[in-house]
């Protein structure tokens, strides 16, 4: 490259890196630090409803003395009230079971897609992606009409004579599982499909030529090779499922405890911002391990591809 070209390149390079970096720093990272700070504050009847507020206009000294007002009271409260611990545990449980269900349901679909005639595959992939483009809220809403007591499913089952009295599915955890599996299915199918589609089919032929029965071939050859897809899919559904709000709120009942719902109620109904912040901080601490793991997997994938 010639010398006159080098200079503007460096400048534009700096610009390309700097602008998104600054944006994410300001609107993604900095807010977390604020959440952390507010989680250590006290609730107050004011606007904003917490103390201290760190008003730097009063000088650094005044702000510094307010530092002493920070406390771990909110965290102590979280651990003393069983509601929160139960919410965390039940969120993890619901997310874990949903992830297992998604893997069990998504794998055969992805496998079938990867083994379909090559000409069909782009269309099938688009058909999986299409529901993901349509509104999440609407897709969850669609299930209310199906699962409610006077809903389509009950009407249909009574009509066929399979049941006499309508089943109660809506407002139970079963409805939450159905909602999560339904909404997150594309996130599970696509990474699985990507891994299965790349697989070299001659490996399967080799196994069968050597007398390996099909089912064993699957467990010895296919499944291990699709593992990156399995890992990506599981993280992609598990992490957001733990903090899910819309699905438990609309499909679950009052007995459905999920931390996203608890945080929402703490924030919007009780207007306890510091407590809501500490709920968020603990949730983030629970999720930080899987998030870092997911991120590393993504980065490795990217480095492999390039």
């Amino acid at each position: 490259m010639t010398a006159p070209n080098a200079k503007p390149l460096i400048k534009s390079k700096f610009f390309v890196v700097f602008v998104p970096y600054l944006w994410l720093f300001l609107f993604f990272l900095a807010p977390f630090l604020i959440v952390l700070k507010i989680s250590l504050s006290q609730t107050a009847i004011a606007m904003p409803p917490y103390l201290p507020t760190f008003d730097f206009s009063e000088g650094i000294g005044a702000a510094f003395s307010e530092l002493k007002e920070l406390s771990l009271d909110n965290y102590a409260f979280l651990f003393s009230d069983s509601l929160y611990i139960k919410s965390y545990l039940s969120s993890l449980q619901i997310a874990l079971i949903s992830t297992a269900l998604l893997l069990a349901i998504g794998y055969p679909i992805a496998y079938g897609m990867a083994r379909s005639p090559k000409a069909w595959r782009p269309t099938l992939v688009m058909l999986v992606i299409l529901p993901f483009w349509t509104s999440f809220l609407i897709r969850v809403y669609a299930w209310i009409g199906i699962l409610s007591r006077e809903g389509l499913l009950n009407t249909f089952l009574v009509w066929t004579g399979l049941i006499d009295t309508p089943l109660t599915i809506l407002s139970t955890n079963i409805a939450v599982y159905i909602g999560i599996v339904y909404s997150y299915l594309p996130f599970m199918v696509l990474p699985l499909y990507a891994a299965l589609e790349k697989m070299d089919e001659s490996l399967l032929e080799a196994a069968s030529d050597l007398g390996c029965p099909p089912l064993k071939t699957f467990w010895v050859v296919t499944f291990p090779l699709s593992l990156p897809g399995v890992v990506a899919g599981c993280f992609l559904v598990f992490i957001p499922a733990v903090g899910e709000f819309v699905i438990p709120d609309l499909l679950g009942g009052s007995s459905t405890l999920m931390i996203g719902k608890t945080l929402w109620a703490e924030f919007f109904s009780n207007r306890d911002w510091p407590l809501a912040s500490s709920v968020a901080v603990i949730l983030l601490m629970i999720l930080v391990i899987p998030i870092v793991f997911f991120q590393n997997a993504q980065q490795r994938q990217q480095e492999r591809d390039s």
Binding site: L24, F25, F32, I239, G243, G260, A280, I291
Partner: peptide, 30 residues
């Protein structure tokens, strides 16, 4: 800060929406 940058790009993909929403609101209030 490359690691930090890629972290900030990938983390919001899986971040529960309630956390993102709450943290941004608290920033705007602050």
């Amino acid at each position: 800060g490359r690691t930090l940058f890629s972290g900030m790009v990938y983390a919001p993909l899986v971040m529960p929406e309630v956390i993102t929403g709450l943290s941004l609101l608290l920033l705007f209030v602050a």
